[in-house]
Amino acid sequence: MWTLEYPVYLFLLAVVPVGIWMRHFRKRRGGRLTFAFDIWKGSGFSAKWTGLNILLGFSHLLFWSGIIVFIIALAGPSLFIQERIFLSRGIDIIVVLDESPSMAAQDFKPNNRFQSAKNVIREFIAGREHDPIGLVSFGREAALRVPPTLDYGEVLRGLDSLNLMDLGDGTAIGMGIAVAALHLRSSTAEYKVIILLTDGENNAGEIPPETASDIATGLGIKIYTIGIGSQGEVPLEFTDSKSGKVYKGMYRSGFDEELLIRIAEESGGEYFTALSQNSLESIFKTIDSMETRGQKVKLGIKTIPRHNVFLVIGIFLLFGDYVIRKALLKEVLP
């Protein structure tokens, strides 16, 4: 949006009509020569509306528009950018996502669990504002994919690049929580949250889930746990992104509900079960609303001066007038 820093200078525009009158219409104006061109009782000559006259008129137009542009530049035209500035620190959130092969179970129509979880997390990120979000994934091992950042584009890119079995075929819940806790440790946020999504029992990793959750709780981190998938036999099919091998079969699904409940309760979070894509969506909506705190926001205004554009245009308009009059039309009178 455009704005003027000192619009009061625009009053100078009132000088323009006076100037035009002084220069082009006043009876006793200068810049003209009086000489006889008329014989007694004869008829004189008058300037025809020729190309030269048009050129002269054009140069007058350049001159006065140049003056107007200069006066506008004087008023300080600027680009005006309004932005919301957050005065309070948001909540640091790390999403910990299971990428063990069982997440390929196809009980989350139309997608498998993993794809559904990714979609729901994507929506969750889109709904947050000014809360740094990070991403940890785990299989047999756990890894930080994206550190907590406000750069949601990076988080989404990190989320998209996750593949099943990238970190081996296990379920190291403890490692996942520990990695997330480690990376929330140096955070200056008042509220820190881990959202854990898993569909299996802890069967890998050096750190047991209980220990990891104690560490996190000690750091003041709240953990929401989501057990996903229906219990019992479910069909499973996926392609390993590394080897290109297709895995297919029936899988006996089940997660350690007790463990997830305990972790959530100890840390002051909540436990949820997601049996379908819809329930997963509503769980994330619930967490979203539970973890929404009032943020202090003010409207910041940034002005970027743009008078130089006007100045350069004005200089060339006035220079153009000068060249036409003095060089092309060879105006004699200074």
Binding site: P132, P147, P148, T149, D151, E154, H183, S186, S187
Partner: peptide, 13 residues
């Protein structure tokens, strides 16, 4: 390219 987004996670950095 952005090797690391803006973060205060010094551990990661």
């Amino acid at each position: 390219f952005k090797f690391s987004p803006a973060t205060e996670d010094h551990q990661y950095l």
